[in-house]
Nucleic acid binder design. Structure first.
Lengths: 341, 341
DNA sequence: ATTGGCACTCCTCGGAGCGGAGTGCCAGAG
DNA sequence: CTCTGGCACTCCGCTCCGAGGAGTGCCAAT
């Protein structure tokens, strides 16, 4: 029985602390939440929770504050994802529906997410390696200079230039184009790259491989395996950092630095890429000590939620139920849009 | 004679204040800069400069601080653009040379700029309206669904989908593609849009305009006049905000908000678009009261420095000579890269 | 025009003192 | 065994005060 009450106390403390930003004491707790026991009882519970590592005191004779472990328990067992209001759903839909291309979808997503959660939002561009090739276009800019346009299912467009040794006739160009598309179109990136590679691998006693084809394929394969573009993320809502208030140097500075480091962001989001659920990383649970006072709430989006990730990063003291709901809602909506287009 | 010394005093104050962040007093001035006069003399000069509005006192009996007007005079008449060291030049070159496409150039520029100036860097994407059409590609995804790829001289690629009423045969597609390219290729955006429009304007007694052509042209023209994409900027180096130190609410918060507002950024940069020189906006000289304690240093880049703008925004208390040099150097280098590719 | 001297202003910093919120513990009641 | 009221204690945050110091403005002298 007391076990149940203790959890209720922890939940109440998390809620109050998130709301007020101040350590919460026993007396205030009994008043705000109608627990029908005395402050002294609560104090005993608090002491127990502190022993177990769910609460901490900033200093003796101050109220209690949840620890990372406390938040973790709260997120895992004490909270339910708060459903979005229809107004919020409509806001997401209205805002994202106007998007014209992939860039636009990503940029708008970042904005809604930042606005809904009042946190810093991060959206990863659809992963190149998980897309399929929709089409490859080859255009002659001059007789010896080709423009390659690689169009992917995710809506991403990559372009590359190729300089040729010799001039290329129109019919040769057409042949080249169709051979390449035959090999690559519809395939997942890795497969397409392999198929293209096979096109130019010399066969003993087979026909000679044209130099132009080799050059084009080399460039395409390189573009396909260019994981740099996998590493692209968009960040928004940094103005929300202003609400951090206290402790500029200890929490905002490292966070700003992390936001500039795309690699760090990707690793943070990456953990979330999994199957369907919203992932929450609290405080020092990750490998980055500098971000000890921040949490990351993220999830995957796209087919199987595996195309890429999006989420937010904010102080450990945040409204987890609401934030998780917003992240999930936006991810779902983005998935739907990508699916339709 | 004293007039000259007064300007020297102003210059010295600006330099010292930028270096130390502290109001500078008469005694410290004579010591650091070997002015061969006594502190009392300097005090008289300072009083005069204050009367003229170039200096201010935080409070009675503190040292002097330059006003916006003081910085302005300093920038206009008392400073020379500090030449970049060869190491810095090499850093810019080395960093930007690796860029593979337009996105990459822009992103890398932001980074170098932020790193060189230790300020928040802003780079505007090459303006769509000032580019020419390099090529239009039309690809049939299905018999009734076309993908249009619009490739511009600035390296920008726009893509749009078109849904057709009726199926389109391969030779019709080829004809359509060549008619469009004939009309648009090589032209500046506005001209290309007009030429395309003319293609589908019905001529009395002329041949009927194919529905497919109309649909494609409409979409292209819309994409060309889509000024939304004109409004794209990239921001970097926000971690440098951490160095603002003092006055979070009065300077950093509004700045962060401005950085999120692309429109504001564009207007700030926009003023710089002019001919060749580096523009400096100091404090309240612009229309944004919220940014009263920040300055913007910007310049154009691209052909005639008119393609788009880049620059930095930072506290009015900044190293103007060094910053201006960095902005100019990066702009020149970016122009060169865009020119070559 | 420049300088040394001098009185004055006002900020900054450290220490002392106080009020209050909150705790821990204990003894007693259900 | 659990809960409760009571009580002493701790420590933070605030304000007040006074000393120290940097810098100024003005004046009389050169």
């Amino acid at each position: 029985m007391q076990e149940e009450r203790r959890l209720a106390v922890l939940r109440a403390i998390v809620q109050d602390y998130v709301a007020t930003e101040e350590p919460v004491g026993s007396k205030a707790l009994v008043e705000r939440h109608h627990l029908n026991v005395s402050p002294a009882t609560i104090r005993n519970d608090m002491a127990a929770l502190e022993d177990e590592g769910f609460l901490a005191q900033p200093h003796t004779s101050a109220g209690r504050v949840p620890t990372d472990k406390g938040y973790r328990l709260f997120v895992d067992r004490l909270s339910t994802v708060k459903p979005m209001t229809t107004a919020e759903r409509r806001a997401i839909a209205g805002f994202l529906d106007g998007a014209v291309d992939l860039d636009d979808v990503v940029n708008r997503s970042v904005r809604v997410l930042a606005q809904l959660t009042r946190q810093v939002a991060v959206v990863q561009y659809p992963s190149l390696s998980r897309s399929t090739v929709r089409h490859v276009e080859v255009v002659a800019l001059t007789p010896t200079r080709l423009l390659l346009v690689l169009i992917l299912s995710s809506g991403r467009v990559e372009q590359r230039h190729v300089e040729l040794e010799a001039e290329l006739a129109d019919d040769e160009l057409a042949a080249l184009r169709s051979r390449i598309n035959l090999a690559a179109t519809g395939e997942i990136i890795a497969v397409a790259a392999a198929a293209l590679d096979a096109l130019v691998r010399p066969v003993p006693d087979g026909p000679e491989v044209p130099a132009a084809l080799t050059a084009v394929v080399d460039t395409l394969v390189e573009a396909m395996s260019d994981h740099r573009s996998d590493e692209r993320v968009v960040v928004g809502g940094t103005a929300n950092l202003a609400r951090f208030g206290e402790s500029f140097d200890t929490s905002i500075r490292p966070l700003l630095e992390a936001l500039e480091e795309q690699v760090v962001l990707l690793r943070l989001l990456g953990e979330a890429s999994g199957g369907g659920a919203v992932t929450v990383r609290i405080g020092t649970e990750g490998p980055y000590e500098e971000l000890s006072s921040t949490s990351v709430v993220a999830t995957g989006y796209g087919p199987d939620d595996a195309l890429a990730s999006l989420g937010i990063v904010g102080p450990t003291r945040m409204d987890y139920p609401g934030t998780m709901a917003a992240v999930r809602a936006v991810a779902r909506y983005v998935s739907r849009i990508l699916d339709e287009s």
